[in-house]
Each structure stands twice: as C-alpha cells, then as structure tokens.
C-alpha cells in the first residue's frame, strides 16, 4: 500500500507542475486559434469560448496530460525496470520468492490509473480556467460570458468522460513501460532502447485508444 502511495506521489504530485504548465499554453493556443478560424470562416468569434471549452474537455486536456505523463513517467518506469533487469535484480526477486509483476507492475499500474484520472481532471479544469483568462484578456469576453457560452456546449458528462480517458491512458503507460523494461537487453544501449520504445509505443497507443474511446463515448451523447 505504501508503495502505491509512493508511486502515486511520483505520478501525480511530481508530474503536476509540468502538466499544468503545458496545458495552460495549450489553452492559450486553443483559444487564439479557435478565434482566428472562427473569424476566418464565419466572421464571428461569439462561439469561441464554448467551442474551445468543449475541445479542451473532450480531447486536449486528457490527451496532452497523458502524452506528458508518458514522456515523464513511462520513460522513468521503463528505465527503472530495464536497469533492474540488466542488473539481475528481477532475478533476485524471483529467487526470494517475490513475484516481480506483483511487486513492480501492480503498484505502478494502480498509481498510473488513479494518477491519470486525477491529472486529467485537474489538467482539464485548470486548462479551462486558463482559457477563460485568455479569452478575457485577448478576446474581451468576461468570465460570465465565457461560462454562459461554455454552458451552451459543455455538460458534466464531458468531464467524466475526460477523466475516464485519463484513467485508460494511465493504464497504458505502466503496461507498455514495464513490458519493454522486462524485455530490456543488456547494457546502457538496451536501457535506452527500451525507454525510447516504451515512450513511442505508449504515445501511439494513447492516440489510438483516444480514437476508440471517443468513438465509444460518442454513443452516450
């Protein structure tokens, strides 16, 4: 249990600053680009706050935070497990009668699922707040107008689905990272390759899974 909390702290608390920093910039870009395109296409940016809020909740918040989590946590896990593999610590665990999957993968998996859920939630809401500030400063929409416009598009269900997406993406990261870690070849080159592969495969799987989940969730609207 303590191990789960340690991993959870590593996944959530330590990843939070970098994720929040990045999603805030993503919010700025979303608002500005949406406004630019709306003005270009329909000559009116009245729907930008609602549209941007929906885009953030349905896609941006969960995917950006999951990709950042992959590059930070996934790479770390693959390197950690890979190093344990080449230094034969995993073999030692087996000799001690400890199941390495139960000892290494399960706490990381639980921590990443909960962490993905939590980080997706926080990232989405902070991203929305940031979008509101940007629309106030750049597009001259008051916070009240932003929320009113957001209410026309966004439902509470969107946040729930975003969190579920975050949890699913969180589940992908430890599975892929530990898979490549356990199959790590000897030497520093092997660890590097396992880390690279785990990040690439996790990112690709997250994008594919995002499509699958979006398709599934679209049946609930």
């Amino acid at each position: 249990m303590k191990d789960i909390f340690v991993q959870l702290e590593f996944v959530t608390w330590q990843s939070l600053p970098v994720i929040l920093f990045c999603v805030c910039f993503a919010a700025v870009v979303t608002i500005i680009e949406s406004s630019f395109h709306m003005k270009l296409v329909v000559q009116n940016d009245a729907l930008v706050p609602g549209f941007a809020a929906l885009l953030i909740l349905r896609e941006l918040g969960a995917v950006v935070s999951a990709l950042l989590l992959t590059s930070r946590v996934g790479a770390g896990l693959a390197a950690e497990v890979g190093s344990m593999k080449i230094t034969e610590q995993i073999e030692a665990l087996k000799m001690l009668g400890i199941d390495p999957v139960r000892f290494l993968v399960v706490p990381r998996f639980v921590a990443c699922v909960i962490g993905g859920f939590l980080l997706s939630l926080i990232a989405n809401l902070v991203c929305l707040y940031c979008a509101m500030l940007v629309s106030e400063a750049k597009l001259s929409y008051s916070s009240g107008a932003f929320i009113t416009s957001m209410r026309a598009f966004v439902t509470f269900q969107d946040l729930v689905f975003a969190c579920l997406k975050g949890a699913c993406f969180g589940a992908v990261i430890p599975l892929v990272s530990c898979y490549f870690g356990f199959r790590c070849k000897s030497g520093a080159e092997g660890v590097g390759l396992a880390t690279t592969n785990s990040v690439v495969v996790s990112s690709v799987l997250i994008i594919v899974l995002d499509f699958v989940l979006t398709f599934l969730f679209s049946h609930f609207y």
Partner: peptide, 8 residues
C-alpha cells in the same frame, strides 16, 4: 507521500 496524494 500520503499527505501529498491527499492534497491532490
């Protein structure tokens, strides 16, 4: 760590 997770 428990406190930090709790705060989160």
């Amino acid at each position: 760590p428990q406190t930090k997770v709790g705060l989160m």
